[in-house]
Design a binder for these strands. Structure first.
Length: 258
DNA sequence: ATGTCGAGTGAAACTCGA
């Protein structure tokens, strides 16, 4: 089974790209982020016509996440994280799909730092870790997939200096991410490509794509039962080079015997 | 050094967020 995560950066503007990606790569499960649409205007019919059941958690203009399942209907477990009832940003959706627990995550960017947006990012990471611990305790094969907006190590960016002051690679951001891994979650791309140099995001600005000036911020974290079945983890880099592409590339894992 | 894009508002060209 192949499970992918893809920050689509606007599902309405990107719908042709999304549909051709589903058609060409046929992921069994796809987690989307930055759908940037209210729940009412989500293109449910186009996705169902492509052969996918889907649930989504939208918001007008910004954020928004979704979970797609090929030939199946995801069963929603949770939308949003606990701990901040006043938080109205749509960044977390969790479902049972095809025998695995899947979360689609759009972690706050946190810029500028320091400041309230960075504080929100760190609080959100703490809330995520608490939810992850609850999932862990269920001992199910689980995948926490999405745009984490964290560059875990210096080898996960083309130039550490270029982003040294950015929220994506502050020590606090990295530490919060490392705590998740310390809890036992497996960073699947890191496991398969330990030396680094694998990017999932290239900025639209400053010719980042033609210069291959990218970094790795889209992650698929696996519970032990899922990590035991890890066969491969890759980035579909070519999709970043297409017309009207998202600034992220689809990133995926292959698990055997599920 | 700089280089972009999507969405909302509101009907062109700004703002915001990334």
């Amino acid at each position: 089974m192949r499970i992918a995560t893809f920050n689509i950066n606007g599902i309405k503007a990107r719908l042709p790209r999304l549909l051709e990606w589903l058609d060409e790569t046929r992921p069994d499960i796809a987690c989307l982020q930055e759908i940037k649409t209210s729940d009412e205007t989500f293109p449910v019919k186009d996705i169902e016509d492509a052969g996918y059941g889907v649930i989504w958690h939208g918001q007008k203009g910004f954020n928004g996440v979704a979970i797609l399942a090929r030939g199946d209907q995801p069963v929603e477990v949770r939308r949003g994280l606990e701990g901040e009832p006043e938080d109205e940003q749509s960044r977390y959706l969790e479902a049972d799909v095809k025998g695995v627990r899947v979360a689609s995550i759009y972690l706050p960017n946190g810029n500028p730092q320091p400041g309230p947006k960075f504080d929100y990012k760190l609080r959100w990471m703490k809330r995520l870790r608490e939810r992850a611990a609850e999932i862990w305790a269920e001992e199910v094969p689980a995948i926490l997939a999405g745009d984490y907006n964290v560059i875990p190590r210096d080898v996960d960016i083309y130039s550490p200096k270029a982003m040294a002051d950015d929220a994506l690679m502050q020590p606090e951001s990295r530490e919060a991410y490392r705590r998740l891994l310390g809890d036992g979650w497996t960073d699947s791309i890191l496991t398969r490509h330990p030396a680094g140099g694998v990017w999932t995001y290239w900025d639209y600005q400053a010719g980042a794509w033609p210069r291959d000036a990218g970094f790795r911020i889209d992650h698929l974290l696996l519970s032990p039962a899922a990590a035991d079945r890890l066969v491969d983890a890759q980035v579909d880099k070519a999709f970043r080079g297409r017309e009207k592409a998202s600034d992220h590339a689809p990133t995926w894992v292959e698990l055997r015997d599920i």
